[in-house]
Design a protein around this nucleic acid. Sequence first.
RNA 1: GCCGGGAUGGCGGAAUUGGCAGACGCAGGGGACUUAAAAUCCCCCGGCCGCAAGGCCGUCCGGGUUCGAUUCCCGGUCCCGGCACCA
Length: 878
Amino acid sequence: MQTEPAFRAYDPAAIEPKWQSHWDATKAHEVRDDLPREKCYYVLEMFPYPSGKLHMGHVRNYSIGDAVARYKRMRGFAVLHPMGWDSFGLPAEQAAIERGAHPKKWTYENIAYMRGQLKRMGFSYAWSREFACSDPGYAAREQDIFLDLVEKGLVYRKSSMVNWSTGLNTVLANEQVIDGKCWRTGAPVIQKELPQWSVRITHYAEELLQSTYDLPGWPDAVLIQQRNWIGKSIGAEIDFTVDGRADLKITVFTTRPDTVFGVTFLSIAPEHALLDKIVPASHKAAVDAFKAEVRTVSTQDRTGDTAEKKGVFTGAYVISPVNGERVPLYAANFVVADYGTGAVMAVPAHDTRDFAFAQKYNIAVKQVIVADGKEPSALDEAFTEVGTVVGSAQFNGQRSDAAKVAITDWLASSGKGRKTITWRLRDWGISRQRYWGNPIPFTYGQSGGAVPLRKQDLPVTLPDDVRFDGIGNPLEKHPTWATTANDGSPLTIRTATGPEAARRETDTMDTFMQSSWYFARFTCADAKEPLDKKRVDHWLPVDLYIGGIEHAVLHLLYARFFMKALSDVGYGTVREPFKRLLCQGMVCMETYQRDLGDNKKQWFYPDEVDVTVDAKGKVIGAKAKTDGQPVAVGRVEKMSKSKRNTVDPQSLIDTYGADTARLFILFAAPPERDLEWNPDGVIGANRFLKRVWVLVQENLAALRATTAFAGHAKDVTGADQAVVRKVHATIKRATDAMEKDFSFNTTIAACMELMNELKPDTLSAPVFKLGVTTLLRLLAPMVPHITNELWSDLGNDGDLTIAGWPSFDAAQIDADDADYPVQVNGKMRGKITLPRSLSGPALDQAVLAHPDVVAIIAGRPVKKLVVILHKIVNLVLG
RNA sequence: GCCGGGAUGGCGGAAUUGGCAGACGCAGGGGACUUAAAAUCCCCCGGCCGCAAGGCCGUCCGGGUUCGAUUCCCGGUCCCGGCACCA
């Protein structure tokens, strides 16, 4: 007779949507703003760009965040866990150009679809706080904040060089310039000077730098990257007068004022403003030719790896302020106009690059620092270390690091130089010549000056009736938008002589602006004003922020800057946005490829190849199914469509359910590490969930009929006692992982171990129930659907959030006896068991008296006995 | 070039503070159930030697500290990420 299971099968497609509807209907994950802060927790994942559908990187990011959010709720915290959309940006305009879809329509359709996917994953967001950056409400309030920044002097307009596509008539980002050509049209990209709106992030350079030493919850890698990016450099400016032109001086910036007596030439940026005034007629042609040559090369090629260090003698000489020596002035391609002063004093003896340049152009090398106790001698390479100063007048004999200060002070006292700090960090240019962004709330009168809008004239909203042909900025080409006020009348500004016709700024803001304060808006998404100071101060800083490390110096630096600026314009007192930062690794997968020559590769989807393995299961080759010919098993690389190594989360959910997807992704690797996708591993995760399901369903009646064991491990014996101890040990491991390093992989491993010991045949019903209920509670943050379903099947009323995270008793973890591995001279030789309570000399005696130990010693003299309590015994024998 | 991170079985990974290396999972091998397959369950699973008991080797490589090193120190190799003529 056919044996039908007496219970229903595990069917994620049925139970998962059921719980998701329940959470929606009961608004289970909304949170109050008025509870004591110490009972509150704000966990946030980087919000997505609504590109169309979730990718596996999102699933990983949000699975990690959701596990933390649900864990904290189980611990009784009021958890703020919001979600929104980083919805301005270029892909929407690309879609408009390529498919004729309006950016707004395309964006909001994508949002609707992806919101559905997030809900189908069971992520516990406070959906009432959701917004998209392109929502009029958010964009308008950002304009409001922008005007506050203008008021505070943190916004200005200046001309700067940009990559300009001659094909698209628009500015391109550096990464959109390929081989000096436009990525889309292939048209030449030129360097063009354009007025750009900039935000004064450099105003906060020092605070941004110093605070990195006060962010213990951030990974060092990110902090170090930010410090390097900010690039504080302490040195001196030194003035060199132009020979024969007492009215002109060239100021250099150097971090090595101690080597100033060794200067044998100066290098200056080809774009330097003074150059034209200095170059004599005899050298004008050569210098102009060099300038033209430099200009044709894109910045990246000029400063790239392979770029040759080149220069040209300008025909001019400068006079050293320290010894009156006359040294030549070179224009050099490696000197950057907008760093330092755009001119460098060259000391070939003590700078590697200057040394190479001097060799190439046959310029003198003058050594002014020697290794301690050595004499100057001909140099094969630059000596860049600290040493003793020579050839430097009254500074001879000093240590070179001390001479830095002494020489700077001496120069300062005579007005020829000064101590200076330079920064690598530049102000943030936010102008983008694009439609799908937040308009910059400025206008231009007929006289040309830029005038900020008044707050009552906000918001500036994007017109819907725009055409996308891929050329230029649709806002600029719109017939009326730029000249029409919000009430439909012609746009004017007030001047001393009365109203004057005006035209709107048609540039929109960099989308990093929106992501710089969205986390603050989540605390008060319903506020009329841009930010509700009280709630901002209540919730911020975010307790845990989770996202990819690729944002280490862009988004994460901008957001830190914005928080300080927001505070300075009155939106709260918090100056750092994120208390703890978790950077998750990439999601990767094996690739299959065939080299077609010419640097071209053909990539294969995993289901297009057959993989062969050897007797141990090691992959030894692969063949294409279509032609049976070999394909190379490529490296494990970040999932990308071009390499055909992606897995669509939706198909995963459809096949195995959200819980399996979440469990696998949390189990396969710790959060910070790259995760290698493994389809077999997914099956394994699913198998584990099924086993949990069957374990409960098979024993449902017995489980419902009893209450979980609540006594002490010492009250029971045998398998019961072992399981009670295991329960406490597992809770401890899981709790430590959640609190310390979010190592969900080991938490899941511990849960698997616990389940492997839950044998209903050998356990009393109460202990079995303790094991099962503990297992469900520990797994609940990671796989909320199946655990809540089973919890409910066990006859519980409330869900697992209410049931709470279990607590452990450390005293019940360890057995009465302790195992001591026995080593001889550091090599394993046996194992003995002794009472855990033994310690000190009594323990030593018990060890030596143990028959196994006596046998191991075999009469040899014990030179030393090492006994580490509850850990190990090591006998040092002669 | 500079800065940062990493290297552990066939694979992903574990190992608390210097104390039994390889937890847990995947793959692989063997078995049970089945007419058969799938699913499920049980056993084995770092390498070498050995019938076995057991022994030797083993955490990228070479040294060192220590009773004891995957862990700490010194030197090197390779891989990944970031920055880069930044004066």
